[in-house]
Design a protein around this nucleic acid. Structure first.
Lengths: 353, 353
DNA sequence: CGGATTTGTTTAGTGGTTGAATTATTTGGC
DNA sequence: GCCAAATAATTCAACCACTAAACAAATCCG
């Protein structure tokens, strides 16, 4: 119960645009001011919140002491390994990017080094890492095992086990997730604040992250969002997956450059299927699609209007991603601090030991 | 908190195959035996659980008193209105069907009469109704307003307001939901126990219910599962929705009879898209597809193997629905008793008044 | 300067859970 | 046949976390 209410209070601070007061949080959550005070004291003692000087107020009454996430609280380490680069970034509890690192040699050994450097940089700022999340362009099994990552040439690779081998990382909780999934989480924080949307990432392959009500939908085995292999032309071009007419063959990076109209129409057909099935009203185009949004949007929207059953009952918003190519690393780091924000009690318990 | 734990205890009883004891529940939930005792006492007093004689045990020790859902507890009323029939059924807390009614005149007035008859029959058994749920073949807005139901000729019809007009139903909480959604819920209880699956209902139109982790996924506006309008052949036959090549034109009732092979292949293409997007591993064919499962399954499975990216990493189960044409009414009644089972505290509070 | 007003803290009280001890009911061994 | 062991369920004191209400602090307004 306390755990739940700690999360409730912290979430309220996270979600509020301004810096709320204890009384404000009490009003928003339905808890008593006394309860909120007690909980906030714990969160301040644990280094998750900080008090700020009283803000200038209008009207009578004692001025409120503003509360905000502490920039010195636990930070998240985002990692990404992709076809032609490595990336790492440290994001503090407030969501601010504190450090970024890149490398052009996409190997696991290089990733380990990058992670160690990032951790050292965080330590210099006095930041403790709550954990790390790794973005991978492939299918990830629940335990973090990468079953297949075609563009990396990986099959049944266990990056967590490898990173744990580095002494400086042995104690760090690490998770692995699909690149598009994490990019979607990055967009969730950085974007317009919609809690439910589809994030589509168009690179060599095409992936999607499905965000429902502020949470990533991963599917039964974590393999959701493989929109690149949705069939658009049943007897169309053969795909490397063995099927014919996959979206990837019509809206992959190559086709977007060569024939944007075809890419847009194909994408529109696949997206209409998603909307018909899941009843989403926001679609975010990221990855390689974002910079070419202007060329693609009209063609996509035309297909959506034609093929979505409920198109005339409620509008569908199509917009480009706000984050650039580092959406996945940002999302990975975000996933770590989200975990702390969603369950501050375990972090506080860890600190107390 | 008590509300949460009451639900936890009741759910444990619902989900356990045998009749659990208080101690067994304590072990399964992590609560203390003392706590479970107190909660179970409340549930028995509220008429939701009953004690049964001690079961024969192996080994020493005091024998456990078996607990089971009470057949005299609150019951659910399921209602369905469709193109050529009306249906109603009363399901008790244990999930047993106590009464069924049918009618061939699918009007709202007839539905009201049927509901009154069903309620009277339930009352004769000493059953109190916790509420009613109505299955409709159309798009339902959150408040229960039916935006469009093409096969009924409905547009912006409010069945709740109508039924409330009947004095004998004025005090009954009523909800409205899509037919395929409720049929999926019916299958959830009656089926193999998988918590996550896609239920596809093939009638004149084709609808689907998406069940994720034991819960129906309704989408942002409750319009999920419109698989009938997923595009399978982008330049194919015109559909009554205005688009071309919708699944409904290739796997609707007419086509299943005329060309089962084409229906199966088309259905396979659309289902592969669903699996690629949502990573489901169980697909249930219901409605008109169930009786023709033998003719369709091979063709569907062939497309799934070819078009699902992860087909060779994990198998996909395709099976016919266990419930027949009354899946939707059963599911509707089930939805009502599920609501009680998921939140027994409010039911107990209502009784106490 | 004093009342009004709002924030935050203190204190007593309450509901609900835990843990230990107790009672109840069976099996099995000598 | 009786006692010990084992398991189920209840009772009771302690405790934790939230609530309610009073109180203290800090500001504005007349």
């Amino acid at each position: 119960m306390r755990a739940h209410n700690l999360a409730l209070v912290l979430q309220t601070v996270v979600n509020s645009a301004d810096r709320p007061s204890r009384a404000g949080i009490a009003g928003a959550t339905g808890l008593t001011r006394a309860t909120v005070s007690a909980l906030v004291d714990d969160l301040i003692a644990g280094g998750l919140l900080t008090e700020h000087g009283p803000a200038p107020r209008s009207g009578a009454g004692r001025p409120a002491t503003a509360l905000a996430l502490s920039p010195d609280g636990p930070a998240g380490l985002g990692l990404e390994i992709n076809v032609d680069y490595l990336a790492a970034c440290v994001v503090d509890l407030t969501g601010a990017v504190r450090h970024r690192f890149m490398d052009r040699s996409p190997t696991l050994a290089g990733l380990g080094e990058l992670a160690v450097r990032a951790r050292a940089a965080a330590a210099e700022d006095g930041l403790a890492l709550a954990g790390a999340a790794l973005a991978v362009p492939g299918l990830v099994a629940p335990g973090g095992l990468v079953r297949v990552a075609p563009n990396l040439g990986w099959q049944d690779v266990d990056p967590i086990a490898f990173l744990r081998g580095t002494p400086a990382l042995a104690d760090l909780p690490i998770t692995v997730d699909n690149e598009a999934n994490l990019a979607a989480l990055g967009e969730l924080r950085a974007g317009d604040g919609e809690p439910t949307f589809l994030y589509v990432s168009g690179e060599v392959g095409i992936g999607a992250g499905i965000v429902l009500d502020g949470d990533l939908y991963r599917g039964g085995r974590g393999w959701s969002g493989e929109i690149g292999h949705v069939t658009v032309y049943p007897d169309g071009r053969p795909c490397r997956c063995g099927a014919n007419g996959c979206l990837e063959q019509y809206a992959g990076a190559a086709m977007v450059a060569e024939d944007p109209a075809l890419a847009a129409a194909s994408l529109g057909i696949a997206l209409a299927a998603v909307v018909n099935l899941l009843d989403l009203d926001v679609i975010v185009l990221g990855g390689g699609y974002a910079p070419r949004f202007g060329e693609l949007s009209a063609g996509i929207e035309a297909e959506l209007r034609r093929r979505v059953l409920t198109a005339d009952l409620a509008p569908i918003t199509l917009r480009p991603a706000t984050l650039g190519p580092d959406a996945a690393v940002r999302g990975a780091a975000d996933a770590v601090i989200r975990a702390v924000q969603d369950d501050p009690a375990t972090w506080l318990a860890l600190q107390a030991v």
